[in-house]
Amino acid sequence: MLLLFVAFTLWPMVASWWYSFFDWDGVGPATDWVGFSNFAEVLQSRPFWHAFGNSFLFSLVAICVEMPLALLAAILLNSRRLRGRNLYRLLLFLPVVTTTAVIGIVFAIMLDPAGGFVNDLLTSVGLVDSPITFLSESYALPTVMAVDVWKGFGITLVYWLAALQTVPDDLYEAAKIDGANGRQTLRHVTLPVIAPIGVVILLLTFQKSMNPFDLVQAMTEGGPNHATDVVATYIYRYAFDPYLNAPRYGFACAAGVVFGVITLVMTALQGPLLRRQYLKGSR
């Protein structure tokens, strides 16, 4: 077990640190030691910081919008009184399994400013005068973020549903006997009990949402004019694009390391807060 972890998780991480000091294309031995020049290039690259900012916005939206909404949906779909909840759960989960490339094309057709039905609807209702180009430089980022929330919602929902199972029935019953209403039960019974696993879910959502590569690539490829660029598409374009004459694996590693370290520091800053929440739950 430890071996698996060391071999397939720790070792690749350490190796990618090592490779980030080379000008290397990923094949054969890495010999061209360039010191910190890859790092210097990453740190000075404005497109990198722009992409980084966008990645961060993606996770902000996931944490502030997707997580609470999914929790509400989970509480609703956990209720035994709701008939058909199994079906609803499946339906809300379906976007997760829908092929990302297909999502790219469906939304492109739906949101098309020339005859797409969303725009037809908006103009016929009179909400807008002229069609909105949803994937244009000005609107692309919020549009892609919204689609990302839609697609990732089912995952967070399942996490929350599992978390809600830690709440023993008798606690609910006790709350009922005490005369607590729905909101009070949620605040004083449900939330405290699911807090430790909630902290884990927060971490997972943060980590997942920082790397929305497939969806961005399928919808905009980071454009137009880099408006939706995230770190993953940046690395891909700068280092692995098949049209490049030579992939820059060392540079990709450096960009990944910088990104990883900063997100880690950001997580660590939240650490004390998270730990308190976590410990409050686990006795």
Binding site: L10, M13, S16, Y19, N211, I235, F240, C253, F259, T267
Partner: peptide, 21 residues
């Protein structure tokens, strides 16, 4: 802490070290 650290290495291109291993 170590586990959480490894969560934040972007995956995908760690494939080369894994492949070599």
């Amino acid at each position: 802490g170590l586990l959480i650290t490894t969560m934040f290495i972007p995956h995908g291109y760690t494939i080369i070290p894994i492949f070599k291993l």
